[in-house]
Simulated assay, not measured.
Amino acid sequence: MMDEHRDMTCAVVGVTANRHLHDGIHRDWLQRRYIQALTKYASVECVILPTIDGDQPSDATIRTFREVMRRLDGLVLTGDESDLDPSIFCMNERVWARADDDVVPGETDRPRDRLSWMALTVARELQMPILGICRGLQEMNVYRNGTLYEDLSLSHKGITHSENANLPRDEQYLPVHSVKIAPGGLLSSVIESGELQVNSLHKQGIAELGGGIQAEAVADDGIVEALSYKNSSTFQLALQWHPEWHASSDDKSQKIFRAFGSACDAYLVQRSTT
């Protein structure tokens, strides 16, 4: 049954944190732009999901985590500067236990990898709305056994996918290349457009799509820039770009957040009647 004390007027979504290591101190952190865009345009409340150290076995951890996510109406997989470690997502050979090099600033964030694997596993079980952004898109692909290019600058010369570090931070999130939207897909139905100008701040990128995944947008150099989970009963979409950064001035980004928020609202209503 639904918690009778809960406010039924607003959906609540879990937003993934990242691990930050500075001066030997571990911190969970999240860029504020995600919360601002989700609150204003998706009209949801947000709770931050903490990263996972791996001190406990994955099966024990997921039992606890499942109870947390049963209280939520959606999942947001955020971006991060670290590279994804596919070994944590591998069903047959998962590397789960804590290691000394779990967190290498700007390179590795296995506590985040563990969190995202856990969150995607439970979200799949519960058929929960999902919005993946940048690293989140890569996680959604690898979770379905897709593969990644480790460094797009070594394999794709047509488009520069990484940001220009010499520019001010706000300018790094301005549109730099176009993507073609797949007709008849989820993203096309949301933004009602055949092409978008997007920002690009990523080193890794999709090499092969995982099973049950639909390409929703593709860059001119062939890199998949948006995807969805096929045959999902709800909104499960991921974008390689960052719609949250300039959402206040971009109506297409606002439409994406609103569509996700509507799916979370519908999920809340469904849960309240079961």
Rank of each mutant, 00 (worst) to 15 (best):
L154R: 15
C90P: 02
A165K: 14
K157T: 14
P175C: 12
P175R: 04
D83P: 09
D80A: 15
S116M: 15
D100C: 07
R94S: 09
C90F: 04
R169W: 07
M91F: 09
E163I: 08
S162Y: 12
Q138W: 00
L148T: 02
S162G: 02
R98H: 06
Q138M: 07
T121A: 05
R110Q: 01
G158L: 13
R110E: 00
E139F: 06
S87A: 15
W117L: 15
A123R: 06
A119L: 10
P175W: 03
V104K: 05
P105R: 02
L131R: 06
D102A: 12
I133D: 00
L167T: 10
L167G: 03
E139N: 01
S162Q: 10
V176R: 12
Y143R: 03
C90G: 01
N141P: 05
H156M: 13
Q127M: 05
D101P: 02
D85L: 09
N166P: 00
E107D: 04
P86I: 12
I130P: 01
L148E: 03
D113V: 13
S155P: 08
A99Q: 14
L120S: 03
P111N: 11
Y149W: 14
E81N: 14
A123N: 02
G146W: 07
M128I: 09
Y143L: 10
C90H: 13
L137G: 01
E107N: 07
I88M: 08
R110H: 02
R114L: 08
M140A: 00
A165I: 15
E107H: 14
A165D: 09
R110S: 05
E150N: 13
G146C: 08
I130D: 00
P129V: 07
D85M: 09
P111V: 11
D170V: 09
C90T: 12
